[in-house]
Design a protein around this nucleic acid. Structure first.
Length: 560
RNA sequence: UGUCCCAUGGUGUAAUGGUAACACUCCGGUUUUUGGUACCGUCAUUCAAGGUUCGAAUCCUUGUGGGACAACCA
């Protein structure tokens, strides 16, 4: 009843929309679009764009068009279309229409003919070198092409022949006739069409002329009646041309408005499609979906949830400043999500055998483990405790200082959900390596028994798994892909030389609690005290494979 | 030797002329059968200098710093 709704601050795009609404744009005219080029996989940088557009669609209850910007058949493929759609669906996004710039090739052609007739476009027949030379520089005006004043009839004829395939690539192009001395270089008679004798993934061989971005994009927005066309900052100078092209065909329908926001960058990774493509093609990673990649598919395989990615981009915000966001924010988003939702599991990645000498041989017992202390409805599960168990090698230090939360000779520690044990003796192999530790246990200290002994305070609680009741699995331990914050900062240094050699460590003898023996790909768990892990897509019941999504926060590890 | 965009703690984002807030990071502390979680605390007179105003992060001017602009790419 009362309007107690807090005033949430609007980002600058939302402010523009609110203003447009105030000035007469009706709410049912609002329409947005997400226009990926199908020449690569979606990455976390794109997430900002689709998050913004679909977010606005949701906020204003307006349709969002998924439009593939497929005007360049030499780079674009169906594989990418499929991957992009899969990623967006996985993110839970629903588009009102699925469109392709190539759907509009005929309309775009007809409009181009109209421009020729109006004397606003002409066919140029020079080499690209000559044209580039005439174009001038940002500080020097350009010069007119010798073909600039061809007659309308000649232009119409030539353009038609371009379309009919009578020319080779590069022989002729269609240009808008604007102003070769314009201060904005994009306005110096920009190219509208080039000849390309290439099959297109949708239109096949129907066309051998293809429209350029500037010509196709704004007009596509207009055809679809997009109200706000949001793109990244580097398109800012294109706006003037966007508006000029729109002026040529505008007929009182909703006029799209281009506005620009900054791209999202992440530290310790690279974000350009070209560089990501290099990593894939040179086999420096396992593919576009390698869990170290900042792609949506990589994050998915790494164990990130759609909710965590969404939270991340919302937290990052929208502005016009070049942002380099700390991966720590991404990690904090996935931890926050997984902390609430994942079942806690005992997993020993680097096993050390422990023999509890005063525990009866051949005997086992069941202990109860909480599934998730953050979720009171998560319940409990059974674990088997026995005389021989594994703990993490790093959790045993022969002479362990009392303030360190680990097992040592003569030092007590608690086995989570089990008993309090004390280190008694180390067993070494011929080379002197510790291969086993003999311990004793306090029979009365069983967790959950309520006994006085069970409630003793001991420095340290370890995770463990029974030596004869577990599954052996492979665990891929991932770390950041690059050793430096900005791998592509220095143009003298090849970013590929900065790859973190420890970005992937494969562990093959990991002992996992029996509860996970039938774990399926994409399932996520917290391995107690270690971090969050998910089942890899290649995992089978014969060979379980887990990927480390993120570590737990660990102040102790940081200090050491 | 131009035009345009940007400038708030380590990183982001807010404050829309009324006295700098939130998240992450960092560092300290409390609780804890995860060195997790939760909770508490520390960290900026807003790039600079002028101006307008009772009052400026916010408006104006000039600097300074960063970015964009010359692909038959998008």
């Amino acid at each position: 009843m009362e309007n107690l709704e807090e005033k949430k601050s609007l980002n600058f795009i939302e402010q523009i929309i609110e203003e447009d609404l105030k000035e007469g744009l009706s709410a049912d005219q609002l329409k947005f679009r997400f226009p990926p080029e199908p020449n690569g996989y979606l990455h976390i940088g794109h997430a900002k764009a689709f998050g913004l557009n679909f977010g606005l669609g949701e906020k204003y209850n307006a349709p969002v068009v998924l439009r593939f910007d497929d005007t360049n058949p030499s780079k674009e493929e169906q594989e990418y279309v499929d991957a992009i759609k899969y990623d967006l669906s996985w993110m839970g996004l629903k588009w009102a229409e699925e469109r392709y710039s190539s759907d509009y090739f005929q309309q775009l052609y007809d409009w181009a003919v109209l421009l020729i007739k109006k004397g606003k476009a002409y066919v140029d027949s020079q080499s690209s070198e000559d044209m580039a030379e005439q174009k001038g520089t940002p500080t020097k005006p350009g010069r007119n092409s010798p073909y600039r004043d061809r007659t309308v009839e000649e232009n119409l004829d030539l353009f038609n022949k371009m379309k009919q395939g009578e020319f080779k690539e590069g022989e002729h192009i269609l240009r808008a006739k604007i102003d070769m001395t314009h201060v904005n270089m994009l306005m110096r008679d920009p190219i509208m069409y080039r000849v390309m004798h290439k099959a297109h993934h949708r239109t096949g061989n129907n066309w051998c002329i293809y429209p350029m971005y500037d010509w196709a994009h704004g007009e596509s927005d207009y055809i679809e009646q997009i109200s706000h066309s949001l793109c990244s900052l580097e398109f800012e100078p294109h706006r003037e041309l966007y508006d000029w092209f729109l002026d040529q065909v505008y007929d009182q329908n909703t006029r799209p408005k281009q506005r620009e926001f900054s791209r999202l960058n992440l530290n310790y990774t690279v974000m350009s499609k070209r560089k990501l493509m290099q990593l894939v093609e040179e086999n420096l990673v396992g593919g576009w979906d390698d869990p170290r990649m900042p792609t949506i598919s990589g994050l998915r395989r790494r164990g990130y949830t759609p909710a965590s990615i969404h939270k991340f981009i919302v937290t990052a915000g929208v502005s016009k400043r070049e942002q380099v966001i700390d991966v720590a924010l991404l990690e904090s988003c996935i931890r926050a999500d997984l902390n609430k939702s994942t079942t806690r599991i005992m997993a020993v990645l680097d096993p050390l055998k422990l023999v509890i000498t005063n525990y009866p041989e051949g005997e086992t017992e069941i202990v109860m483990a909480d599934n998730n202390p953050e979720d009171e409805n998560a319940g409990q599960r059974e674990m088997i405790f026995s005389r021989e168990i594994y703990i993490e090698k790093a959790d045993f230090i022969e002479e362990c200082p009392s303030k360190v939360f680990k097992l040592g000779i003569g030092k007590e520690v608690r086995l989570k959900h089990g008993y309090i044990i004390k280190g008694e003796e180390v067993v070494r192999d011929a080379a002197g390596n510790i291969i086993e530790v003999k311990c004793s246990y306090d029979k009365k200290s069983k967790s959950g028994s309520g006994s006085e002994e069970s409630q003793r305070k001991v420095k340290g609680t370890l995770h463990w798994v029974s030596a004869s009741h577990h599954v052996t699995a492979q665990v891929n331990v991932y770390d950041r892909l690059f050793t430096v914050e900005a791998p592509d900062e220095n143009k003298e240094v090849d970013f590929k030389t900065l790859i973190n050699p420890a970005s992937l460590t494969v562990l093959n003898d990991c002992k996992i609690e029996l509860a996970l023996k039938d774990a399926k790909p994409q399932e996520r768990y917290q391995f107690q005290r270690l971090g969050y892990f998910c089942v890899d897509d290649d995992s089978t019941s014969e060979q379980l494979i887990f990927n480390r999504t993120a570590t737990l926060k660990d102040f102790w590890a940081k200090k050491n």
